[in-house]
């Protein structure tokens, strides 16, 4: 306990914000035990009933929109062209070309475009 602890204590006592406690609040244990015992059946019920409605991944949706947006049109154009070229060529020649680089450009454009939108949706 140095002088600094004293000051910190004083400041903490006076400050309007609170400190985090490791102990659960007194009433919570009751709730918790009841929760614990309930939890498993509840989960199963939930799975069977309401949670069957599919959760949709916002990342996939947003990136799909971004891929088709004007911003990523050049990258998408190159990628599509490459896919077409490679799928047509692979029969005769030993397919030497791949579309990884084109894929990178498109994926990068899409994820960059979707990043801020995604973060505003996720918790």
């Amino acid at each position: 306990m140095g002088i600094w602890d004293t000051i910190t204590d004083l400041v903490e006592a006076a400050a309007p914000w609170s400190t985090a406690e490791a102990e659960a609040p007194a009433e919570e244990p009751k709730e918790e035990t009841s929760e614990d015992s309930k939890e498993e059946p509840e989960e199963e019920e939930a799975e069977e009933e309401d949670d069957e409605e599919e959760i949709e991944d916002p990342k996939e949706k947003l990136e799909e929109e971004c891929k088709n947006s004007k911003q990523c049109a050049p990258a998408k154009h190159h990628f599509d062209e490459c896919v077409e070229r490679v799928t047509n060529a692979s029969d005769d020649e030993e397919g030497k070309e791949d579309c990884v680089e084109e894929f990178f450009h498109l994926a990068h454009c899409a994820s960059q475009c979707a990043a801020p939108k995604l973060w505003s949706v996720l918790k």
């Binding site: 990628f79 490459c82 896919v83 490679v86 692979s90 397919g95 791949d98 990884v100 894929f103 994926a107």
Partner: peptide, 15 residues
């Protein structure tokens, strides 16, 4: 990105 970046299928021609 690693965890969410798996595409449905690899791009054409990728090994």
């Amino acid at each position: 990105s690693l965890l969410t970046g798996y595409p449905e299928e690899p791009p054409a021609g990728a090994q």
